[in-house]
């Protein structure tokens, strides 16, 4: 099966959700994803949002190198005192975030709506 390299795009929700940036991830997160992930994160950070939300609903493969890249983003977010959230994870990936203990540091939400609603003012 050919690898589906990661595509990452950034959106800035309007209105009450201003102050958040959403990174939509599509494809596979592995060692080849660093460039796409770092570029999207840098773009999201450029507007100095309080919250950066990673939307995993279109991600269908993550290996351990991919998880390490997410740890790198989390370290960057914590250094700049931003909240990094995740949404759209399947049960399988929620379990991966639990075993790697990423979920100790990232709040996980079922979808974008609940992530942005619940995290507003938190």
């Amino acid at each position: 099966m050919p690898a589906k390299h990661l595509e990452a795009s950034v959106r800035y929700p309007p209105g009450e959700r201003a102050g958040a940036a959403v990174i939509e991830l599509r494809g596979e997160i592995d060692g080849f994803s660093q460039e796409a992930l770092d570029a999207a994160y840098a773009e999201a950070e450029s507007r100095d949002p309080d919250i950066i939300l990673l939307n995993f609903s279109e991600v269908d493969y993550i290996n351990s190198t991919g998880i390490a890249l997410i740890v790198g983003l989390l370290a960057k977010a914590r250094a700049s005192r931003r909240r990094l959230l995740a949404c759209g994870l399947s049960d399988h990936y929620v379990e991966i975030f639990n075993i790697t203990r990423l979920s100790d540091f990232m709040s996980l939400f079922p979808d974008e709506e609940s992530a942005l609603t619940k995290s507003a003012g938190a």
């Binding site: 099966m1 399947s90 049960d91 399988h92 639990n98 079922p110 609940s114």
Partner: peptide, 20 residues
Amino acid sequence: MEQKPPAEEHTAQKQPRDAA
């Protein structure tokens, strides 16, 4: 509501190919 660890009954759903 924040996501909780998957319940046992959800394991029947289609697993991604990295699951194993």
